[in-house]
Amino acid sequence: MNATLLDTLITPVVMLHDDLTLAYVNPEAMALCTQPYEAATPFFEVFPFSKQNADLAALLLRLSHALLEAQCSDILGCCLAGKKGRYTLRVTRLAPSMGLMVQIVVPQQAGAQRVSYFNISPVAMMWTDSHDIIQAVNPAFEAMFGYAQADLLGRTPAFLRDGLDEQTTLEAMWKAVVDEGHWKGEVHHRRQDGEVLTTQLSLSAISHDHCATTYLSFFTDISHHFEQIKQLKARAYQDYLTELPNRFALDDTIYELILTQSYFYLIFIDLGYFKQINDNYGHLVGDRLLHAVGQRLHQLDRAFVCRYGGDEFIVLLPISAQPSDVDTAFSSPFLIDGQAISVIAHKGVAQYPRDGYTSEALIRYADKSMYKMKSSGFRS
């Protein structure tokens, strides 16, 4: 078994099948082993614990039958051959026919709170049987997904993915678990309230020759991480000054239009005498003017508006519109800090596919067209 989360614990943890043979031993527990072992080796052969006037094997077997799922009980005052001090064996029943979790509490931790890692783990955990039917979940799982354990027992985790297209991911997951015993990746799940969570799922198989395979899953909610990425991506595609899309967003939009539209216009706009506006009114007014220009252009029907850089804007229009529609944005002065500022706009027009087949070709054509009109004294 490759249970990566349990491997990181500083607490020795051993997973046992119902016949008290080993299913999994984490690295901290391996340090206490007295001999090499393989899966299905009896627990007390590898961990020769003893307790005065007690048959530990019989006691552990009785606990395996007496404990209810997710319940735990301590066996105090255990000695380990070759080691000093007394240990506590904290035994947790995972679910019927699912085996036991044994935490070995070392002497210096003898006063530790008497609860099972399964119950106090901040990581959501789920046990399923050989048919992937849920046998137990821990409180962290209940908190993450909003379900009580009683609502989950006897169901498969598939209902947590209702309406979510995860088939390709799940096929890859089960192939890896069958081939390698373990898989880790991103899977979407739905909470009881309908909210979709992006989770990092770690799934491990526990099996040996004479017992059916069972599965241990760890879930980590990474939805906030994806929300942060979404916000960063939005910022990366937005001009900070005008709040319009920037040239990265422009490239994506042109590419999409090329794939989906037969024709469209690309209009390159340059604001005339903008340097003089900055000199006369100050750069703060100039910045606010750029924002106001962007907002007026943004109000054009069916227009995609981008601040290309400096005082340059690019507008994409459907072929059913007219390039002259952009002139309305400059037909009246802009009121900035009480100042009425008239703006002259020079524009150049390119039409797809007549004037180019790529974003670079269309922008280059419209830019040259704009400079020809600018040099000839044309104004919008």
Rank of each mutant, 00 (worst) to 15 (best):
R155S: 03
S50W: 14
Y281S: 12
D327L: 15
V177T: 00
P157V: 01
V91E: 14
A66N: 07
Y237F: 13
D19L: 10
T198N: 03
I133P: 01
P107F: 02
H65F: 08
Q71Y: 04
A124V: 00
F141G: 05
L9T: 06
Q238T: 10
Y365Q: 12
I229L: 14
Y117E: 14
L32H: 09
L244I: 02
L20V: 08
R90G: 05
T11V: 14
D367H: 01
L300R: 02
M1L: 09
V285A: 10
A66E: 11
E360S: 13
G85N: 06
P42T: 02
L201E: 10
V13T: 06
T41L: 15
I258M: 11
D193Q: 05
S130W: 11
P318C: 07
Y215R: 10
R247M: 09
A361L: 06
S359E: 10
L32F: 11
I206H: 15
D355N: 09
V123H: 08
L335A: 09
V177G: 02
M30T: 03
T213M: 03
Y365D: 04
C33V: 01
A148D: 11
Q231I: 15
D151I: 13
M126T: 00
V14F: 12
V196L: 02
A148M: 08
Q322M: 14
L60N: 02
A81S: 13
D251T: 00
I319A: 12
L9G: 07
K175S: 14
V349Y: 01
A176T: 02
E312G: 03
T199N: 15
R302W: 07
G146M: 14
L317V: 04
I258R: 09
A329V: 11
K368Y: 07
Y357T: 03
M98K: 01
P48G: 10
Y365I: 05
A176E: 07
A81K: 10
F44A: 04
F218R: 04
M101A: 14
Y365W: 13
M101K: 08
L170Y: 06
V106E: 12
V305A: 03
L100V: 01
P42L: 09
S64F: 06
R379C: 09
I363S: 01
K83A: 04
E171N: 04
H283D: 04
Y255M: 07
I277P: 03
C33H: 04
A140Y: 01
Y237K: 06
Q113N: 10
D74P: 15
R247F: 02
Q295G: 14
Q322H: 13
M370G: 06
D7M: 06
Q52Y: 13
M15K: 15
F159Y: 12
K83S: 08
K374N: 02
C78I: 09
V123W: 01
P333G: 07
F226W: 03
A366I: 09
D209A: 10
D7E: 15
P122D: 11
L244F: 00
V196C: 07
P27M: 12
S320D: 06
E180D: 13
L289K: 11
Y308P: 05
A23E: 15
M144N: 10
L317T: 00
T253S: 12
C79R: 08
K175V: 15
I134S: 00
V178Y: 08
R302F: 13
A234F: 08
L160T: 08
A40T: 00
F226N: 03
H65P: 01
H208L: 00
F330V: 13
N2R: 12
S202R: 10
L300F: 06
P139N: 14
